[in-house]
C-alpha cells in the first residue's frame, strides 16, 4: 500500500474486502435461493421457477462483477477505481437490460417473478450482509463467527 495523499497515485494491494463481502452474499444467495425459487414456483408454476432462477443468477453475477471491478482497479489507482465504478454502473445496468431483453418473449419467462426476485434477492442479501459488516465495524476485535 502506498501512502500518498493523491487519489490518482494511491493504490491498494493485498486483500480486497469487497470481494469477501460479495463472496459471502453469493454463498448466502445460493443457500436461500432455492426457497425463493420454490416460492415463485408455487405462485407462477414452472415459468416462475425458471424466471426466479434466472433473476437470482443475474443478481449474483451483478454483485460479483461489481466487487471484481473494484478489487482489480483499486490495485492500479483510486482514480481509475472511481471511473470504473461509475462506468461500471452504466455497463452493469445495460447488461441487465440486455439479459432481460433477450429473453423477454421466451415462453418460460414470468415477468412478475423475474422482477420480484431481482428486488427481493438484491435487497435481502444486502440487508443480511449488513448485519455482519455492522458487527465487524462496531467491534473490530470480535470477528463474528459463522454460527451467528
Amino acid at each position: 500500500m502506498t501512502d500518498t495523499s493523491s487519489p490518482m497515485t494511491t493504490r491498494f494491494e493485498g486483500a480486497a474486502p469487497e470481494v469477501e463481502v460479495s463472496r459471502d452474499m453469493i454463498r448466502r444467495g445460493l443457500i436461500v435461493g432455492p426457497v425463493l425459487i420454490a416460492l415463485c414456483g408455487i405462485i407462477w408454476s414452472m415459468s416462475g421457477v425458471a424466471s426466479s432462477a434466472y433473476a437470482l443468477a443475474l443478481v449474483l453475477v451483478n454483485f460479483a462483477i461489481a466487487a471484481g471491478l473494484i478489487a482489480v482497479t483499486a490495485r492500479i489507482s483510486l482514480g481509475l477505481m472511481m471511473g470504473a465504478i461509475l462506468f461500471g454502473y452504466l455497463i452493469r445496468l445495460a447488461m441487465l437490460f440486455l439479459a432481460v431483453y433477450l429473453v423477454k418473449d421466451a415462453g418460460w419467462i414470468s415477468r412478475p417473478a423475474l422482477g420480484l426476485t431481482i428486488i427481493v434477492s438484491h435487497l435481502g442479501l444486502l440487508a443480511w450482509e449488513l448485519k455482519y459488516v455492522a458487527a465487524s465495524l462496531a467491534y473490530p476485535g470480535l470477528k463474528p463467527s459463522r454460527s451467528h
Binding site: F12, A16, P17, V21, A66, I70, E129, V133, S136, L137
Partner: peptide, 11 residues
C-alpha cells in the same frame, strides 16, 4: 473499512 462500506453503499 471505507471500501467495505462503500461497496455496500453502492449496492
Amino acid at each position: 473499512m471505507v471500501r467495505t462500506t462503500m461497496f455496500l453503499g453502492i449496492a
